[in-house]
Design a protein around this nucleic acid. Structure first.
Ligand SMILES: [Mn+2]
Ligand SMILES: [Mn+2]
Ligand SMILES: [Zn+2]
Ligand SMILES: [Zn+2]
Lengths: 136, 136
DNA sequence: GTGCTAGTTAGCAATCAATGCAGATTAGCA
DNA sequence: TGCTAATCTGCATTGATTGCTAACTAGCAC
């Protein structure tokens, strides 16, 4: 994801307004490695800006996603998570505490896929399930 | 997933009763390669047994899953899908029509995972996104 | 076969995540 | 400074799933 300053320009360039709510979310997401849910971000945002609405959080995250600045991660349980890391990477999720961490996977282009049968593959998501160091 | 006959025995052996509703669902799921949602199964079941409840479909599928007879597949959109194929396999999902197909992946044990950082991996799910032959 | 009872079913309420909607508000520009 | 399209908030609604409970029944004992 771009920096808050760059996002400010990018939003204006797209005819989108830069509001205090959006600026706050730019800051909360920039460099965030927690893979937070919308609700988790809403809590953080509310601490700094009481009165901000969950609806606005969803809206801004959706805008950022459709601009390609965020990825949505579905770990198969609970709410979708938002990821400012748009590099080619994958995830490990702790079955116990739900923590999600970035992993970089080598060899994913060498996978032999049997049974494709006319299917054209655009992208691949690999999800590793396990337990983190704390929950070991 | 075991055959309906084997499941009948397995359920009784676990102190679970074998009802007509469950037997119907055993039959509908056995060998089913559609990766249906609970609601899709409910529709099929209702055609053969009017009055069966969606609640019972969910309950039976959950029972089968906790006996290890079914896998739950989350393709990141809409409802969870149920899979009687418990072999080691993965999935392709068509972005256009939502169809899910089994794929068998060689080389998934050779993946080099960077950034694990104390995380112990138990299992891996690979989801390929693309378009099926029909939606090409 | 009859009766008992623990387990099951159906139906509906409740929850959770996410989106739809509309009136009040405001960023950005002239 | 004023205009207006875009945004925000708060609330209603949807969709998937789970919780709850009274009525029902499979499976077992007699
Ligand atoms: Mn990530
Ligand atoms: Mn499958
Ligand atoms: Zn953990
Ligand atoms: Zn398709």
């Amino acid at each position: 994801m771009k920096s808050p300053t760059e996002l400010t320009e990018a939003f204006r360039a797209n005819g989108l307004k830069v509001t205090p709510q959006r600026q706050l979310l730019f800051r909360l997401m920039h460099g965030n490695t927690m893979h937070p849910t919308a609700d988790a971000l809403f809590s953080e945002a509310s601490a700094q800006m009481p009165g901000i609405s969950l609806r606005t959080v969803y809206q801004t995250l959706t805008d950022l996603a459709s601009m390609g600045e965020l990825r949505l991660i579905d770990v198969g349980a609970g709410a979708v998570r938002f990821d400012p890391n748009v590099d080619d990477h994958h995830h490990v999720v702790c079955q116990a505490c739900g923590d999600v961490r970035d992993v970089y996977v080598a060899g994913s282009q060498q996978l032999r896929i049997d049974g494709l049968d006319g299917f054209a593959v655009d992208s691949t998501s690999i999800l590793f399930h396990g337990s983190c160091a704390k929950c070991a």
